[in-house]
Amino acid sequence: MQKGTDTVKRGHAQMLKGGVIMDVVTPDHARIAEDAGACAVMALERVPADIRAHGGVARMSDPGLIAQIMESVSIPVMAKCRIGHFVEAQILEALGVDYIDESEVLTPADEQNHIDKWPFKVPFVCGCRNLGEALRRIGEGAAMIRTKGEAGTGDVVEAVRHARAVIGEIKRLTTMRADELMAYAKEIGAPYELVRETAELGRLPVVNFAAGGVATPADAAMMMQLGMDGVFVGSGIFKSGNPAKRAKAIVEAVTHYDNAQILAEVSKGLGEPMVGIGVTELPESARLAVRGW
């Protein structure tokens, strides 16, 4: 019996495909998410919109809160640690969370290095804005990737930009001759072996979810049609008028992402979406997606 292998770490993300992972801050939220059909929850003290509003240093959540959320649902529970903060990650592993998100939504603890994720038994998901960043994270041991988008805004534009960047670069990669791959690896700052593997597969070697700004069933379905494997929804659910109904609608939209009839049906009467912030109004210093190296 071998535990913590690459296959079971990456494989867990494969079981989440076609699903929605929801940010929750209380056990009640977690139960609402589970009842709505979430395939996992992300346990947090504050959703990204509140992290933005609150300011200051955003850290790993209280382990007591995460443990309560783990006890309240039967679906997988993820939790966030700061970029580079390997001790927060050790604590989350000791707690028994099912996935760790090394996340730009929290204040980075290291401005040069991400966590060496290989020695951990618990799998990691990391954010990316482009293929180079995705492959660097996989090179460090990430078992799942999410495109970053711009968390806590309710504006899907960055999620689209990052998803298109990753998919577009992979497409380009698949048209290259073998002798062009090393130069390309150098150009995007990615490990050569992973560049070659991605070119052969025609996709990332791990599951790739969309994140950061998804607020409606249409947003979620759009990310799926662009070729993402599933969707993270952060502030979009519990900052909206009717979280239970919206959560269920987004789950249904991800399953039936290419059926416009069903998308129309599930999008009806969801109440107020989260208010949101246009990303173009955000100064560079307030953007979370630029964190990560």
């Binding site: 296959t7 028994g96 618990v122």
Partner: peptide, 14 residues
């Protein structure tokens, strides 16, 4: 029994 072997850290190959 669901999740009978534990959480993700107990996932295994055999």
């Amino acid at each position: 029994e669901r999740n009978a072997f534990g959480r993700q850290v107990d996932s295994f190959e055999e």
